[in-house]
Every structure is written in C-alpha cells, then in structure tokens.
Amino acid sequence: MELRQLEYFVAVAEESHFTRAAKRMHVAQSGLSSAIRSLERELGASLFIRSTRQVELTPAGRALLVEARRALSATDAARDAVAAVQGLIRGNLAVGSLQCVHVVNVPHVLARFHAAHPGVEIQLRQGGSRHLIDQVKAGRLDIALVARPLRPTDDVLIRSLASEPLVLACGLEHPLAGRTQVSLADLSREPFVDFQPDWGSRDLVDSVIGDRRIAFEVNDVHSLLDLVTFGLGVALVPQSFSVKTDKAQFIGLAEPVPAWETVVVTSESPSAAATALLDTVAAARSGRC
C-alpha cells in the first residue's frame, strides 16, 4: 500500500467522483482509477459503489477513510518534524474555531503566526465544537479552539485556555431584567434561544437545564442575541457575550453550575506548525504579542 494510493482514495471519497478527484490531484483519470483498483485488489475488498453520476463508499471504504486520513496526517507530521529540525516550518496548517473565542483574538494570532512562518499555508474553518473535535480526530484539522467536551474524548490532546460563568441573557423589558440573580426554577416556563446541538454551549446548557422549550435554534451568536433583545426568548450564555450588546440584560445565576471552558484541541502528536501556533496562542494570552 502506497501513500499515493491513499491520497487518491481520500480524494475520490471526498469528491464522490473520479473525474473531480483526478482534477484535484492533477493526474489522468485513468491513472487514478488504476491506483484505486490496485488498492482494492491489495485489500481484497471493494472500496466504492460506482455509478455513472457519482461514487459512494462501501462499509470497507468508510473504515479505510478514517485510517487513511490518520496515515496521511502522520506523514505530514513526519515531514514537518524533519523541517523543524532544519529550522524550517512549512506545509499546511488547518485550524478550526468557534465563531467567537473571547479569550483569543483568532485573526490577530493567525496574522502573528503567518508573519513568523510565511512558508505555512493556513486554512481556517468555523463550526460547532463536536464537529471540529471530530475533524481533529480524523486528521482534517491540526488544531481547534472549542468548548471543552462534556464527555471524555480519546485520541486528542486538550489544553485549557480559560473558563467563565454562564449568565442569563434576556431583553431589557423582560420581567427578570431587574433582578441581580435568577434561579434555574425562574426559567422553567421561559422560551429559550439556543445554538444547534453540535455547539459546545448547547451541550453545556442542556446539562444545566435540559427540560426546557427551545423556541429558536440558531447557528451564530449575533442572531441569538438579536432574538433575545427583541424579547422572543431567553438564553444561557458565557459571560463574555455581555460585551457584544447593550440591548440585552445579563444576569448571574443563583445556583452553582458548570463553567464555560475554552480549550485548544490537537492530535496526540501535533505537527511542528500546530505546536508553533500553540506557542503563538500562549504568547497572545500572556500579552507577549
């Protein structure tokens, strides 16, 4: 089994099409198809269900995809390690991030990293915490800035950046707006605005007050706060959201509840570029950049 075969296989799996995969890999389709057939013969299993319009992974193909991505990621890490010994950091760095990471100015950190390591091509993807962690596991992301997962997570390293309390967000005219504290019992009949289920804050709030009516489900912070501002629902959010608007009231909770924690996630053997970005994040947190 050759690395080139695995690269071709991953390209076909992600494109769901041999022609598009061949264009992506800058090879003739016949050569790519031949490499895939050779891989299937070597493994003794069909990897794709072929049709005239697209291809789909077989169960064997789905199993191989996870390991192929890990193998290719490990190969990239090996190349990076050699480059690092030679005093060079180059290659690609795929970064995942929540939309709002209060404890780190992500654009600033990426700009500082790029200035220090211009040979590294940076990619940034935003998404929910669970999805981004899965992308790190699969080798599609090198590093992710997310909320700490509630359940133990294998095959990744998790480093804490900061934690902050959850607070209630409500409209300025809401009956609870004049309180200095609210209890969870006060919220039993309130309609909620919340994020989609793969967001880390949604998981945390579900663990705090799971029996509630979610009237509005959104996928960005500003939509959530706008809906709260117009009195369409309340939300439990990290305290740092309070700096984003003065058109909502933010109130502390009477009961002790788990804190919102921002973490950085990498593979168990992060690449040289990922390690360098971790150093840049640490420098930004300490005020050194």
Rank of each mutant, 00 (worst) to 15 (best):
V27N: 08
R20V: 07
G171R: 01
R130H: 14
T75M: 12
V234W: 07
P149C: 05
S267V: 01
K244L: 15
A45M: 05
G231M: 12
L227K: 05
V193K: 00
I209Y: 01
A74N: 10
A21G: 06
T153F: 01
R4I: 09
F48C: 03
V136N: 11
S207C: 06
S223D: 15
S38M: 09
V228E: 02
V85S: 05
A138C: 08
A28F: 04
G139I: 07
R288I: 01
R53F: 03
A63Q: 13
Q99S: 13
P238M: 08
I133A: 05
G44L: 08
R212M: 10
P149V: 09
D142W: 01
Q181P: 00
M25D: 05
P258K: 06
A78L: 14
R213L: 12
H17V: 06
L141K: 07
S160Y: 01
R159W: 01
D76Q: 14
R140A: 13
V218I: 12
Q29C: 07
L132C: 08
L6M: 15
K137D: 08
F9A: 08
A63Y: 06
L278I: 07
V156K: 07
T180C: 04
P258Q: 06
R41C: 00
V264R: 04
D246N: 12
D198I: 02
S188V: 11
N105W: 06
S51H: 11
A248W: 08
A169L: 02
V234Y: 09
Q126S: 09
V106H: 04
I49W: 13
G231A: 09
R125C: 03
R179N: 10
C170W: 06
V265M: 05
R69Q: 14
V281Q: 03
A71Q: 13
A63R: 14
I214F: 02
M25S: 11
M25F: 04
F241E: 03
A68G: 02
E40Q: 13
A77E: 15
G127L: 03
R148I: 03
A81N: 08
L3A: 10
A94D: 15
R202D: 03
L227E: 02
Q196H: 06
F241T: 05
T262D: 06
V146H: 07
